[in-house]
């Protein structure tokens, strides 16, 4: 059953990612991306990461994709769709990406994880997943968490400064 679910999720993820990068219309790309994010959330559920699956759906599908859709609809892209979607050098780009893929796949082939941490399935089950993640996040990784909040604040201010109209002085 788990193998079947993993096969379904991975086949859909690969097909939909190819559709995202090859669709001519950006709105279609964003909608394929929505399907992709739900299937990635399914993979997270297979890996016992319920909190991350929920975060994936809420943050990516709920916030980031809506931002993309708003931007596409703010810009008038009817002219753009008629031109070819790829730059002139696309065969070279495809070759580079394939070379990276072959290198990474060959590198993963011999990978063996040696380190086994303290959070096995039993420990997470007794603690519940969100609580366990919160314990790690707010003790061991408190400083990176605060830095992430500063990064988000800078992004908010930066987006407003960049996107607003220049005021006449």
């Amino acid at each position: 059953m788990v193998e079947f679910l993993f096969g379904y999720f991975s086949v859909v993820i690969v097909i939909v990612s190819v559709l995202v990068v090859t669709s001519r219309n950006p709105v279609h790309s964003v909608l394929w991306m929505l399907l992709l994010f739900f299937h990635i959330a399914g993979v997270y559920l297979l890996l016992n990461a319920e909190f991350l699956a929920a975060t994936q759906v809420i943050v990516y599908a709920g916030a980031i994709l809506v931002l993309f859709l708003f931007t596409i609809m703010l810009l008038d892209l009817r002219e753009e769709i008629r031109l070819g979607p790829f730059t002139g050098g696309w065969p070279a780009a495809l070759a580079i990406a394939l070379a990276v893929l072959i290198t990474v796949v060959a590198g993963i082939w011999g990978l063996k994880p040696a380190y086994i941490g303290p959070w096995g399935i039993k420990e997470i089950q007794t603690e519940t997943h969100t609580k366990a993640l919160g314990k790690v996040l707010f003790t061991e990784y408190l400083v990176p968490f605060e830095i992430a909040s500063v990064v988000l604040l800078v992004a908010i201010v930066g987006a407003v400064v960049l996107a607003k109209k220049k005021l006449k002085t």
Partner: peptide, 25 residues
């Protein structure tokens, strides 16, 4: 392997497309 395939499809899309919104995607 699944994660690497998704990464490389994204990389190919970033290098191949000329639309800047799809590059962000």
């Amino acid at each position: 392997w699944l994660g690497s395939v998704v990464f490389c499809i994204g990389m190919a899309g970033f290098l191949m497309r000329r639309n800047i919104i799809i590059m962000f995607l």
